[in-house]
Design a protein around this nucleic acid. Sequence first.
RNA 1: UCCGCGGUAGCUCAAUGGUAGAGCGUCCGGCUGUUAACCGGAGGGUUGUAGGUUCGAAUCCUACCCGCGGAGCCA
Length: 463
Amino acid sequence: MNSKYFSVKQAYSLTVGTEVTLRGWVRSRRDSKGVTFIELNDGSRFKSMQLVVDAGVVLDETLKQVTTGSSIAASGVLAESPAKGQAVELKVSAISVYGTADPVTYPLQKKGHTLEFLREIGHLRVRSNTFGAAFRVRNALTHAIHTFFQERDFIYVQTPIITTSDCEGAGQMFNVTSLSMANPPRTADGNVNWQQDFFGRPAYLTVSGQLEGEIFALAFSKVYTFGPTFRAENSNTPRHLAEFWMIEPEMAFYELEDNMALAEEFLKFIIRYVLDHCREDLEFFNERIEKTVLNTLEHVAESKFGHITYTDAIQELKKSGKTWEFPVEWGSDLQTEHERFLSEELFKKPVIVTDYPKDIKAFYMRVNDDNKTVRAMDVLVPRVGEIIGGSQREDRHDVLLQRLRDSRLDEKAYWWYFDLRRYGSVPHSGFGLGLERMMMYLTGLKNIRDVIPFPRTPGNADF
RNA sequence: UCCGCGGUAGCUCAAUGGUAGAGCGUCCGGCUGUUAACCGGAGGGUUGUAGGUUCGAAUCCUACCCGCGGAGCCA
């Protein structure tokens, strides 16, 4: 192996005649009388490199070990391919095997597997077309997100994963403790004595970094969080995980209108970035997973988003003439069927719904002058419905206090959150995007467990 | 958590109370450049687990486990 190492991706950009050594995993192998074809993939791009081994070039005992799943290095010369399917191929002069893969037990076949089966072999599914494409897209998406904010002078803030505040009371939280489960210290009345726990009180895994994000926004003006969040909710659906990633920008001096403009610019930017950098992977999803992916993404990237208030949206839903599975009434939340109607049929493009009834939204959202609605916004997109939720935050101390009390939350736990309204309070806004929800939108994959490397769901934390 | 559907060969599925099968993958052989290669042959099973009904259970009943979809919750 004297020639230089290249990735498969690099090799495709080299000129014919270059001597290279490629390393990777064998996807498949086809034998003919005088020639063997090997598909070699190293994850650097969707496409594999076809290796062509003429009979006699490689020892039979070596070639025999080159089976689906084995890892090899192959040296040779890049050549124009005489057959359809690839422009170039590697004319092999030598092969060495790193690790064999017993064909009798190796679970991945050349032919299609169901996503459910692949989920059971999480350590190997990343070597398949679908998951290779998914995680290259995920990588590009995370890069696009950081690029978008960094180019606009946002500060990236790492909010804590362990928290003692039950943020906005959203969902069940995981307890974090170092106490003995079997024999915890107890108080005189028999309850667990949390004072003896690691943090001196109950602690949890965070369900959102928003409140801490507000702290940083009121010092750095524009910030964003990007990290894991946790829900102990027993939800068994294709849209929920116990551990998932969220992006939460928070901006001082932004009112709802600024917030909406940023959300629109943000969505268009990350979609355009993935379209530009993962074309090959997206084309695979478009062909094999969801045939509308490319169209809807292009459409969203080019559309001017629509705007409508919740109250007007309710009117439109009522006069649509449609029969709804869930009744449409002012004061009840929009269901997925309603959200899809608004974006797919009424506007035929992404639409931002604003000013929801305060009773169905979180306590920290700014109350409008009508005292009935809050400055909330949901971005609805064709095919999935809500993809971003956000709001202008309540920056008035007295109003916030009343809202907290109405929500029956413990105001003592939020003392620092109120201090932000007591010392140098300013209008500020933010929104949240679930990374995996975005991934589902980009790839067309319909189960959220297929767009995160190692899904955590009730009863499942393998790998 | 609730409702529905499902669990049979490595994978995808047939077999509706009477000898458990096919396609693909794998292995062997053939084929002068294949592309989910093609042609011929072979091997491969405690039918999710535990009980029950029956002369006889993959099939009917009960419980449990697991998967998928829907609901709730939400990102």
